[in-house]
């Protein structure tokens, strides 16, 4: 299992790279599902692994596909380890930790795009530049999608088109991505010909 490949597409769609151990005073690791393996892979590359782990705070939640590698991650022996049942349950802790984060903090995000995007948004809100946040996409490719019409966000979208979980419109999932929303854009597919909806196919697994 390695970095989830992203097909070349439009310029707003995020791209990812393998995590690298960088020097820092605090290492904040936020991961879900298969992202745990990316974290372990990063630590394998470090020649000061125990030094890093002694200044590491890990926040982890199982992936949307059910993958739960929390015991593997916990066994690394980081200074702090936290397992949240879901992403929404993880974010308040992240916000609290960020309120104390100093210069010299390294951020490592790994797993699904929904987890990466939402964690990145919290970190950016502190004024930290997004380009200095490491992100490695692993595991499920389901998408977090904002309905451009009703503004509701549907999590874990696997098919295209899909039905908005808020307003019920049939939405086409674009590759256009907003860091501020931490979401892809969904646009009504049968607006011009109501009822003519192409068959829904699984595009994101």
């Amino acid at each position: 299992m390695t970095l989830t490949p992203v097909a070349p597409t439009i310029r707003s769609r995020p791209v990812y790279a393998a995590l690298e151990p960088w020097p820092g005073r605090l290492h904040l690791i936020i991961a879900d599902g298969e992202g745990a393996d990316a974290v372990i892979g990063m630590l394998v590359k470090a020649n000061n692994r125990s030094e890093i782990l002694s200044a590491t705070h890990v926040m982890y939640t199982p992936g949307p596909n059910g993958t739960d590698l929390s015991s593997k991650l916990e066994a690394l022996g980081a200074a702090q380890f936290f397992r949240a049942p879901t992403i929404p349950a993880l974010l308040p802790r992240l916000q609290r930790v960020l309120s104390d984060a100093h210069m010299g903090t390294q951020f490592y995000l790994a797993g699904t795009e929904g987890l990466i995007g939402q964690a990145e948004r919290e970190i950016m809100a502190t004024g930290f530049p997004f380009a200095a946040i490491q992100k490695e996409h692993r595991g499920s490719t389901v998408r977090r999608v904002q309905c451009v019409h009703c503004k509701g966000i549907t999590e874990n979208v696997s098919t295209n088109p899909f039905k908005c979980s808020h307003c019920g419109l049939n939405l086409f999932v674009r590759d256009h991505y907003s860091r501020r929303q931490a979401a892809f854009q969904g646009v009504n597919i049968d607006a011009e010909d109501p009822g003519e909806v192409p068959e829904s196919v699984v595009r994101f697994k």
Binding site: S12, V148, S178, R180, Q181
Partner: peptide
């Protein structure tokens, strides 16, 4: 185009959906 979606994007990002020109 949606301001609410695009606000905060950089030049290449908000133009991303335009075909051929990139």
């Amino acid at each position: 185009w949606s301001l609410d979606f695009d606000v905060g994007m950089n030049f290449h990002e908000w133009h991303a959906p335009v075909p051929l020109a990139h």
